[in-house]
Amino acid sequence: MMKKFQQSGGVDLTALSAFLAVAGQRSFRAAAAELNITPSAISHTIKALEQRLNARLFNRTTRSVSLTDAGERLAGKLRPAMASIEEAILAVDDDLGVPRGTVRINASDGAIRLVLQPVLARFLHMYPQVHLDIVSDGRLGDIVSEGFDAGIRLTEAVPKDMVAVTVTAPMRFAAVASPAYLERRGRPRLPLDLHQHDCIRFRFESGALYRWEFEKRGVSERINVDGPITLSDQPLMVEAAIDGIGIAFVPEHLAVEGLADGRLERLLYDWCPEFPGLSLYYPGHRHVPPALRALIALIHQKGPGARDG
């Protein structure tokens, strides 16, 4: 079999890995960074691969890289094959019991700060043969098609075909404002009162604006608030509220310090019930790398126990 493989053009796994990296990143530079090689080296590898296969795999312009039809067909065949090879290698690592290799994780910025940041230094010290590739992404992307080992999202947003492991306690949102703002504008008593206030709006990476969601005794309210500023960074929303710009509606843990030292006051508390927190999730049909299992175990030393679902 190996002889036939060599006779088919001498294509090696390194070239195929480089091809899949460029196909996934849609960028030679980003793929080079992923593989820790120079852009010129990966460009040369892809050019040699195209020559060996006698087929153009990518359409290149100064601004974009896209797969040709031949490239799409090759990528579709290669991804499951390369995944099988990777699982075979991981199985050997599993037998050795030593976490190693790269673990790619996709999560929102808030999830990274809350779940991963507290354990990063300790984890990397404990497992020096592991490389963590963490991508901050506010979209709910497909971690399988995008080549990630795991993702972290709100439990309610995890796809049903994934294994979800709870990594935070239940959470709630908090409506907060500075004492100076409340002295100037008064306090909302009901969610509908927010229409009479300056609110700090939040925009998702998709471009959609978040409608503030409240619930009390089975009654739900979704408020399309208005205000002088729209942000896509929740910690910055807290700072804006402290500065007296308006009312912010953010995950409670982001406002804890401001509430504790009196720079913020909480509003509409009984309209902000708890909801399930964050879960780390991964495909159930794949081999779970020892490094990912070790990371989950360390996260749980800092938080609640695991719950698979």
Rank of each mutant, 00 (worst) to 15 (best):
residue 1 M to P: 11
residue 1 M to H: 08
residue 2 M to R: 10
residue 7 Q to D: 11
residue 8 S to N: 14
residue 10 G to Q: 02
residue 10 G to N: 05
residue 11 V to E: 05
residue 11 V to G: 07
residue 12 D to E: 13
residue 13 L to M: 12
residue 14 T to L: 13
residue 19 F to M: 10
residue 22 V to H: 10
residue 23 A to K: 03
residue 26 R to C: 04
residue 27 S to I: 01
residue 27 S to C: 00
residue 29 R to M: 09
residue 29 R to Y: 12
residue 35 L to T: 06
residue 37 I to E: 10
residue 38 T to Q: 11
residue 39 P to L: 06
residue 40 S to P: 08
residue 40 S to M: 15
residue 40 S to T: 14
residue 41 A to I: 06
residue 42 I to H: 06
residue 43 S to F: 09
residue 43 S to T: 14
residue 43 S to D: 05
residue 43 S to Y: 02
residue 48 A to I: 12
residue 49 L to M: 02
residue 50 E to K: 00
residue 51 Q to P: 01
residue 55 A to V: 12
residue 57 L to M: 03
residue 68 T to M: 06
residue 71 G to W: 03
residue 74 L to F: 06
residue 77 K to P: 11
residue 78 L to I: 06
residue 81 A to R: 07
residue 82 M to P: 10
residue 82 M to R: 05
residue 84 S to D: 15
residue 86 E to N: 11
residue 90 L to E: 15
residue 90 L to V: 12
residue 92 V to P: 00
residue 94 D to V: 10
residue 94 D to C: 13
residue 96 L to V: 10
residue 96 L to D: 09
residue 99 P to C: 07
residue 100 R to Y: 11
residue 104 R to V: 00
residue 104 R to P: 01
residue 112 I to S: 04
residue 115 V to D: 05
residue 118 P to D: 06
residue 123 F to M: 04
residue 125 H to K: 14
residue 125 H to G: 06
residue 128 P to I: 02
residue 128 P to A: 08
residue 132 L to Y: 02
residue 136 S to G: 12
residue 137 D to S: 06
residue 138 G to C: 10
residue 139 R to Q: 09
residue 141 G to P: 02
residue 146 E to F: 04
residue 146 E to L: 11
residue 147 G to W: 04
residue 147 G to S: 05
residue 148 F to G: 02
residue 152 I to K: 01
residue 152 I to F: 10
residue 152 I to P: 00
residue 153 R to Y: 06
residue 153 R to Q: 07
residue 155 T to M: 07
residue 157 A to V: 03
residue 170 P to N: 07
residue 171 M to P: 00
residue 172 R to F: 00
residue 172 R to P: 00
residue 176 V to G: 08
residue 178 S to G: 05
residue 178 S to N: 09
residue 179 P to C: 01
residue 179 P to K: 05
residue 186 G to Q: 00
residue 187 R to E: 14
residue 189 R to K: 14
residue 192 L to N: 11
residue 200 I to K: 01
residue 200 I to T: 01
residue 205 E to M: 13
residue 207 G to R: 04
residue 211 R to Y: 12
residue 211 R to H: 15
residue 214 F to V: 02
residue 217 R to G: 04
residue 218 G to P: 00
residue 223 I to D: 03
residue 225 V to N: 07
residue 226 D to F: 13
residue 226 D to G: 15
residue 230 T to D: 02
residue 232 S to E: 15
residue 233 D to M: 06
residue 236 L to P: 01
residue 236 L to I: 12
residue 239 E to Q: 14
residue 240 A to N: 07
residue 243 D to F: 02
residue 244 G to F: 07
residue 245 I to N: 05
residue 248 A to D: 03
residue 248 A to M: 04
residue 252 E to C: 01
residue 253 H to V: 12
residue 256 V to N: 09
residue 257 E to L: 01
residue 260 A to K: 14
residue 260 A to T: 08
residue 262 G to D: 03
residue 265 E to Q: 09
residue 269 Y to S: 14
residue 270 D to F: 04
residue 276 P to G: 04
residue 276 P to A: 07
residue 282 Y to W: 10
residue 282 Y to T: 01
residue 283 P to M: 02
residue 285 H to S: 09
residue 286 R to P: 14
residue 290 P to I: 04
residue 291 A to D: 03
residue 297 A to E: 13
residue 298 L to V: 00
residue 298 L to D: 02
residue 298 L to G: 01
residue 300 H to K: 04
residue 302 K to H: 15
residue 305 G to R: 14
residue 305 G to H: 11
residue 306 A to E: 12
residue 308 D to M: 12
residue 309 G to M: 13
residue 309 G to T: 13
residue 309 G to Y: 11
